[in-house]
């Protein structure tokens, strides 16, 4: 039932209570929620903020594909995948994934799959801005065309 899936890209602060409520339903005995939050360090550098951008229509389409993949693999009730863009301060959530299921195993596995797959397929980018004024576009290790993955193929 893809009608039960909610996917969104938003510039607004994410509200975990609200997103959890979206997936609750009477027949579900479990709701698994994952929050990806902004860290304040990278190696020895102090991170002051992250800036996210997305190719919004494609990102939402790829997130809907993830919902279909999850439903092919697990019997889950409702799915919500919400990603924030723009400036995300340290400790705020950049992404929240919530899945409900009759028993907990399905929703726990589905959420794990969903965040790993989101990192490898959904066109969203983040730039870390450091305390010394420098900045850096990050690359997910799950992304096939990240430098660390293409370098290992050529050597």
């Amino acid at each position: 039932m893809s009608g039960e899936d909610v996917v969104a890209i938003t510039p607004d602060k994410l509200n975990v209570e609200e997103i959890t409520e979206m997936v609750k339903c009477p027949q579900a005995g479990a709701v698994t929620v994952f929050l990806g939050t902004t860290r304040d360090n990278f190696e020895d550098k102090k991170v002051i903020k992250l800036e996210y951008e997305a190719y919004v229509p494609m990102a939402e389409a790829e997130m809907r594909k993830l919902c279909h993949q999850i439903r092919e693999k697990w019997n889950v009730e409702k799915i919500a995948i919400i990603h924030r863009i723009g400036i995300v301060p340290v400790m705020d959530a950049s992404v929240i994934i919530a899945v409900s299921s009759v028993h907990r195993k399905e929703s726990v596995e589905a959420v794990h799959y969903c965040i790993d797959s989101l990192k490898s397929s959904v066109p969203i980018w983040k730039k870390e801005v450091y305390g010394d004024g420098s900045c850096n576009w990050k690359e997910n290790k799950e992304c096939d065309w990240a430098a660390r993955n293409t370098d290992s193929q050529s050597s």
């Binding site: 996210y52 997305a54 992404v95 965040i115 959904v122 066109p123 969203i124 576009w137 690359e139 997910n140």
Partner: peptide, 10 residues
């Protein structure tokens, strides 16, 4: 046609 650098969402 979109140019897609390495992804870093999440």
């Amino acid at each position: 046609i979109a140019i897609i650098p390495p992804l870093s969402g999440g």
